[in-house]
């Protein structure tokens, strides 16, 4: 190949690499409060999932490390690629299953941070599902409802403390009541799941 052809080839390659038509399109400027990009939420989700699962599996003796790592990697990949509420629910159930091997009686306090982590995972999954990686979320929006979340976690801690106090006293009537409560909650959940949504006159021009 002659030097002239080589220089032409180099010129063409340079032109293609520096083609101004391939520049990204300009952005729309908006004025908001401090924001976080969507990819950081996905990154946080991808970091939180193994933390939750490994924390749940750490106190259960007899688990194969290879199995735990495989399950953790699969769950992390699933949530990173498809951050849906169903996937978050599946990971939460998986964490609870990993807790099954806890030997501490009557209730291991380690469950409480795992419960908080599982709740945080659900919230992060919701955000990751609603915000594309290139989107931005205002920090005030991320913190919207933090009082409610704090109240929920406090109530859960109180329930855990109550369970810690009453776990030793098993009564058949209490078990029956619990089973009925679970069944009632399930029926309620299924009924509300099929119920028609609020279709009232709404919207800007309503």
């Amino acid at each position: 190949m002659t030097p002239t052809r080589l220089s032409r080839l180099a010129q063409r390659t340079r032109n293609r690499l520096t083609d101004p038509a391939h520049r990204p399109l300009p952005r729309i400027t908006t004025r908001t409060g401090p924001t976080l990009p969507g990819w950081t939420l996905r990154l946080a989700l991808a970091a939180l999932t193994p933390v939750l699962l490994l924390a749940a599996a750490s106190r259960t003796p007899g688990l194969s490390p290879g199995l735990v790592l495989t399950v953790t990697a699969l769950a992390t990949t699933l949530l990173a690629l498809r951050p849906t509420p169903a996937a978050a629910g599946a990971v939460t159930v998986l964490a609870a299953v990993l807790l099954w091997g806890f030997q501490t009686e009557p209730l291991d306090p380690w469950t409480l941070p795992i419960t908080a982590l599982a709740y945080l995972l659900t919230r992060l999954t919701w955000w990751a599902a609603h915000l594309p990686p290139r989107g931005h979320a205002e920090i005030t929006a991320l913190l919207a409802g933090w009082r409610r979340d704090l109240a929920v976690l406090t109530a859960t801690t109180a329930l855990g403390a109550l369970a810690l106090l009453t776990t030793g006293t098993t009564h058949p009537l209490a078990v029956l009541l619990a089973a009925l409560a679970v069944a009632g909650t399930a029926v309620l959940a299924l009924a509300t799941g099929r119920a028609p949504r609020d279709d009232g006159p709404t919207g800007p021009d309503a």
């Binding site: 209730l107 908080a116 329930l159 855990g160």
Partner: peptide, 10 residues
């Protein structure tokens, strides 16, 4: 109770 507790916050 610890298994049930994980689902309580949600």
């Amino acid at each position: 109770a610890d298994l049930a507790l994980v689902g309580v916050p949600g």
